[in-house]
Computed example of a mutant assay.
Amino acid sequence: MLLSDFDYNLPEKLIAQTPCQKRDHSRLMVLNREAKSISHKHFYDLKQYLKKGDTLVFNDTKVIPARLIGHRAKTGGKVEVFLLRRTEGNCWETLVKPGKKAQIGNIIEFGDELACEVVGHTDFGGRIVEFKFDGIFEEILDRLGETPLPPYIHEKLADKNRYQTVYARENGSAAAPTAGLHFTQELLEEIKAMGVNLAFVTLHVGLGTFRPVNVDNIEDHVMHKEFYHIEKEAADIINNTKKNGGRVIAVGTTSIRTLESAAADDGTIAPTAAETGIFIYPGYKFKIVDAIVTNFHLPKSTLIMLISAFAGREFVLSAYEEAVREKYRFFSFGDAMFIE
């Protein structure tokens, strides 16, 4: 299957630069896979499509201020260090710009209270760095780091909390699980009052989620691994939902990848903590996910491939064409889809 099979034309003016004023007032395109129908709603209408006994599964990861701007200790040259994931101790996988200037042994300083040494290379062109500091790393990072917005967002975010879900609680992501940005605390309470279960899993979003595909044959693409975990409480809720005939509805592609990574062939799930490099594209047989809440994704991305695996490539691309015609807002701060 070719990379060009997942391309579509998107006018730049439809790329959302700021979030919707009210989280749940974004638009919602509803896709019915069986009827091949498309409906146009608002996100607060999602309740119409949920049933008592369903379970919504959310990724409760929290975005860290993962972008650090520093200088090389020897030359004073400016360096950007983008944190991807902690490996062990104070060592992190990172992307460094300019990478050619970041060789093993180089020291990068971020003011007086934080520095790092380049201690290794990664197989994706990144660097392993070891941080040196006095105090609590998370507090220092909160002071010195910046919230990393995607490169297609050019406007400064007035409220940095708008790039966090209202249920974010597990620090560790380099990017937000953006399908969840549409939920308000009030909407979650209303959904819960309907008899719909809420389950929370964690996948720390890293390079695997947003790394571009650079091969013509998509089957040659290798996903970067990301850490996830599922607690017993969430596993029990999900298993009971399947047992009782309810639907497991994944909120976002990271929740989908978490569930499908952990699911057994019989559609059950167990408490798990592991890394996943799962790459879902058309031909994949879903084990556990019955419906999806998702945003609109970049052309030729692994995310549009995942959605195409669930709903069919031609149906998904036709829906994207309609979204362009109807002037939906795209990507992280854009509108949403419900696929049932």
Rank of each mutant, 00 (worst) to 15 (best):
Gly120Met: 05
Arg162Ala: 10
Lys243Phe: 00
Leu68Arg: 03
Asp24Asn: 13
Pro271Ala: 06
Thr302His: 08
Ile237Asp: 05
Glu12Lys: 13
Gln17Ser: 06
Asp290Asn: 14
Ala176His: 10
Gly246Asn: 03
Lys242His: 05
Ala309Gly: 03
Phe331Leu: 09
Arg67Gly: 09
Val251Ala: 09
Pro65Asn: 03
Gly312Lys: 06
Lys300Leu: 14
Gly172Ile: 02
Thr272Cys: 06
Val79Ile: 13
His42Asp: 15
Tyr167Thr: 06
Asp7Met: 05
Asp159Lys: 09
Glu130Thr: 12
Gly245Trp: 02
Ala35Thr: 15
Met1Arg: 10
Leu2Asp: 13
Gln185Asp: 03
Thr302Pro: 00
Leu3Trp: 08
Gly334Thr: 11
Asn171Trp: 01
Lys51Val: 04
Thr122Val: 01
Glu139Lys: 14
Gly206His: 05
Lys243Asp: 00
Val213Trp: 14
Gly76Ala: 10
Asp45Trp: 06
Gly89His: 10
Phe315Val: 01
Cys116Asn: 04
Glu117Asp: 05
Ala176Ser: 15
Leu298Cys: 03
Leu144Ala: 06
Phe315Gly: 13
Thr75Gly: 11
Gln103Asn: 10
Leu2Glu: 13
Asp159Trp: 09
Lys52Gly: 14
Pro98Arg: 08
Phe331Cys: 02
Glu326Ile: 00
Asn32Trp: 06
Tyr284Gly: 09
Arg257Trp: 05
Leu187His: 08
Lys132His: 12
Tyr44Val: 14
Asn106Ser: 15
Leu50Trp: 10
Glu340Trp: 02
Pro271Asp: 02
Pro299Ser: 10
Leu10Ile: 06
Lys192Pro: 06
Ala250Leu: 02
Glu170Gln: 15
Cys116His: 01
Leu298Asp: 11
Thr18Lys: 14
Gly111Met: 06
Asp45Tyr: 12
Ala262Tyr: 14
Glu322Tyr: 14
Ala35Gly: 12
Arg23Glu: 13
Asp134Gly: 00
Phe338Ile: 04
Asp7Tyr: 09
Ala263Thr: 05
Ile69Val: 13
Tyr8Ile: 01
Leu149Thr: 07
Lys192Thr: 03
Gly111Leu: 07
Lys36Pro: 11
Gly206Ala: 02
Ile278Glu: 13
Gln17Ile: 00
Ile136Pro: 00
Arg23Pro: 09
Met29Glu: 12
Leu56Asn: 01
Leu83Glu: 14
Val79Tyr: 02
Ser4Cys: 06
Glu314Ser: 08
Asp7Glu: 07
Ile256Gly: 00
Pro212Thr: 04
Arg211Trp: 05
Thr202Ala: 01
Val166Ala: 15
Ala102Gln: 10
Met337Asp: 00
Gly246Asp: 02
Ala273Pro: 04
His154Tyr: 05
Pro151Ser: 14
Ile230Val: 04
Ala35Ile: 14
Gly120Arg: 05
Ile69Cys: 14
Val119Cys: 11
Asn217Glu: 15
Trp92Asp: 09
Ser332Glu: 12
Ile191His: 08
Gly125Ser: 07
Ser37Asn: 04
Glu139Gln: 14
Phe227Thr: 04
Glu34Pro: 02
Val289Tyr: 11
Val222Tyr: 15
Thr147Asn: 11
Glu314Pro: 06
Ile278Cys: 14
Pro98Asp: 04
Gly126His: 07
Leu187Asn: 12
